[in-house]
Amino acid sequence: MIQICLNCLLLSALLLLISIGLNIIYGISRVVNLAHGSLYALGAYFGYSMVSYGVNFYAALLLAPLLAGLCGVVLERLIIEPIRHRDMTYTLILTYGLSVFIDGMFKFIWSDKVQFIQMPSSLRGTLNLFGVHYPNYRLFVLAATVCVILGLLALLEKTKLGMIMRAASTIPEMVSALGVNMKLVHMGVFGLGCVLAGIGGVIAGPLLSVYPMMGSEMLLSCFVVLVIGGLGSLRGAILASLLVGTAQTLGFVFLTDFAMVIVYLMMAVILLFMPKGLLAEGKFD
């Protein structure tokens, strides 16, 4: 029972880590970034390369996401910023193309093989929790996710930067009329989203393996989380990840064949009665 609960939490944590960046980018900059999955994969690949060259796993967990974030910033400046003021369809098509391009680049640089990021030996083995053995690494993933989310909340709630980000999600024009360079905000937010995706990638690496399509495969689940939780709502994303992660895990335990059906059914029902998701779009909180 404890094991099943932890399993639910773990899947929720992974979904949350990856979808949260997507959510922040949409919430603040109103960009639906279809390349987000690819940036998650990019973080995983950076992490994989670092760890296989002997970099400490924890150092890679810090550095690889930053590198992914840097790539995100460059992409934002070069590709998204010039078409920001056009219709959303442009960014959709462009970021989709970008994801295809990045996924293709993985093949060139890292080949099409399925790889694993080597787990640090300190996180191998299992921990006895009230008579149930649970893998240390999974517990680490849970703890790390909680830290990341708390850190993010602190950034958003306690700092001037967070204040600006929250304000920018509602009335961006007024934020620039207060002397803030919105271009920098958009760039920073995109970078932050990519850092979060990168953290997800490195953390998932030892568990879910690393391969070129890993991001694009994950993107669909992220959008389910986003749509259920309400586009651009941080609390909604947390709630929705828990819902989707739990429904999927329990589904596999008790209903096996219908687990995925349940998730999509849940999405359909929620959209039918709450078309904007559980916590509706609007201000980013």
Partner: peptide
């Protein structure tokens, strides 16, 4: 027998069932 969805990333539900 149990069917695992093709895009399954987290196998822990099945591992728990097997245990």
């Amino acid at each position: 027998y149990d069917n695992a969805a093709l895009n399954l990333v987290d196998w822990s539900p099945f591992v728990s069932k097997i245990i």
